[in-house]
Design a protein around this nucleic acid. Structure first.
Lengths: 344, 344
DNA sequence: ATGAAAGCGCTAACAG
DNA sequence: CTGTTAGCGCTTTCAT
């Protein structure tokens, strides 16, 4: 009646696709009930040492791997933490993931992620997809989300952590630093150093709203000091060393009188710095350069890059800690540190 | 009898923790059977347009989000792809994830990941944890895994993709390029350019076995050409720009006669290059520098870095495509490209 | 200390 | 075209 009875061919196939061992099979093999196996495996409830050994022996022998899909369905939390991040090219997000993954792994949680490419609609779709896994928490970049995203998140009942931004209203938890304040601090530093004709080279501001907030803080502080932004060059698309170089080249073609340029981040700033090195523009006497992020590479260039160091790894770590400890709603300001460097 | 009956306070709590809407509730609200809702949602099987509208209206109104945990348990695959990667600091892995995530998202798969920090024991534990989610596939770096890891993987029945290496035996699928061949190609290039006193600056070779294979390929080719490796400086720990700089400094302190240095990757090589810039060592006339990976930044430095460009994003993309199409076991060699640059 | 049984929320036959 | 029903593999009372 069953194909398996009719030939060796199917036996072979059955070996290959052997369905995973189940808890019931382990129970059977150990000669105990299913609930006993479950108790032993989770070390919860009581059982004799003898039973424990029998069960573990069977687990070992059969190569049993518990099925967390079933486990999660039967019990409470999934111990899944979902990251919906804008990009993996921008080093910021791998750094955040790195900080979080250590903590998550130590606490038997798993990280799931997807990449929005800075698109709010994709974010919406991806959040929905993530929510289908009933994660313990979902981590997002910043505070700008579509109405529907916010609604889904609120309705989900899972923890929400908004990362890397402080300029806005948190849904639940928020961990990061103020980009607006960072922009302002950069402006004040440059002004203090005596620069007055300051330009800006940046990448797409509408999509990367945190870069937009830094720009706003910068412009605001420069304006307030009576030294408004001299000019700006916006490079469509993501940030990169190459677009920083190109952006500075274009900006200088228009404005030879600039004495300092603020870049939307260190990648861009390094591009600008390399442009200066290659074209004999002496830094900072002819032109000062200032970045954002405090990448390690900026400390090793012939002149250390002047920038703002941000606690990206710590952001991930703290966010994960708040989630695994189920901390009450709160906003954690990790601050940032201005690195004077030698380029400004 | 129940605390909830005694006061308004608990009612509020109940609102907050309102359990997620279930398919049964949607069916109820729409006045249809559960399987009908299921069919409509998955657009599978047949149903009238009228029914469809009624169901969708209820879904919308209740804010229903399907539970994939339950769905997966009831049906077949999880559509989860597990990445067990050594590091997130090394740009290689974010790049691979980036390539894969695009394809996975387009095909309604989710990426789960964890980080081994190049430790085979952690890898073993993390693979086990991943397997508990019954992923469609698990993606690993390279071919070096513990016996138990291999056993679990084989027994799991899920697809296994080994990434970024070709020098070894694949379990199922493998996508990448030969690190040994890359090391050899680098040596041949340097020799062809006339360099004979070649040194090496690298990071931990035992943990990063792919870097070890490049080193082996390099040494082998240099030895075969009668110009064996002059000296080497191994920096414990991961690769970084700073350790590249420091490594070169130390190496040169011992061997002033070197005419070229091969670095374990571009990060290290950039550190070396910056050291030369800062100390007036002219590149490549006094000292040639050669890296590995072909990072974008190396194309924008005052002198473009001589290196080998590797298809990291494509590795992730192809790996994901093989998985979502359930391709037969195979090894895909994506090759690499030697970039002549100006530093060697 | 242990087993039996009732689900968790969904999908997949199988009837109608 | 649609509803009913039997699980998926586990956890969790509840008895014993």
């Amino acid at each position: 009646m069953d194909g398996r009875l009719s030939g060796g061919e199917n036996v072979t196939l059955d070996f290959r696709h052997h369905p995973a061992v189940t808890l019931a099979e382990v129970a059977e093999a150990a000669g105990v009930g299913e609930s006993t196996v479950s108790r032993v495996l989770r070390d919860h409830g009581s059982f004799s040492k003898k039973t424990r050994d029998r069960v573990m022996e069977a687990v070992e022998r059969l190569g049993y791997v518990p099925n967390r899909i079933a486990g999660t369905l039967a019990s409470a939390g999934s111990r899944l933490v979902a990251f919906v991040i804008p990009s993996l090219s921008n080093i910021v997000f791998p750094d955040v993931l790195r900080g979080a993954s250590t903590v998550l792994e130590e606490n038997q949680h798993q990280a799931v992620f997807s990449v929005t490419d800075y698109d709010p609609e994709r974010e919406e779709a991806l959040v929905a997809a993530m929510l289908a896994w009933r994660p313990t928490a979902v981590m997002l970049a910043g505070f700008e989300h579509s109405e529907r995203t916010l609604k889904m998140l609120r309705a989900s009942g899972c923890r929400v952590v908004e990362l890397l931004d402080l300029d806005g209203t948190a849904l639940d938890l928020a961990v990061g630093y103020s980009n607006r304040a960072a922009g302002r601090a950069s402006a004040e530093f440059l002004l203090k150093r005596g620069y007055r004709r300051i330009g800006y080279v940046g990448h797409d501001l509408d999509r990367d709203t945190r870069a937009g907030k830094r720009f706003a803080g910068l412009s605001e502080a420069l304006g307030a000091a009576g030294a408004p932004l001299a000019d700006r060059e916006i490079y469509a698309g993501g940030s990169s060393v190459e677009s920083g170089r190109l952006g500075l080249e274009r900006l200088l073609a228009r404005r030879r009188d600039l004495d300092a340029v603020y870049f939307s981040n260190d990648d861009m700033a390094l591009g600008g710095y390399f442009h200066c090195l290659a074209h004999g523009i002496s830094v900072p006497s002819q032109l000062a350069i200032f970045g954002y992020n405090g990448l390690d590479i900026g400390r090793v260039t012939p002149q250390p890059l002047s920038t703002i160091r941000t606690p990206r790894v710590a952001t991930g770590r703290i966010a994960a800690e708040l989630v695994v400890t189920n901390a009450p709603p709160q906003v954690v300001d990790l601050g940032f540190e201005l690195v004077e460097g030698a380029t400004a």
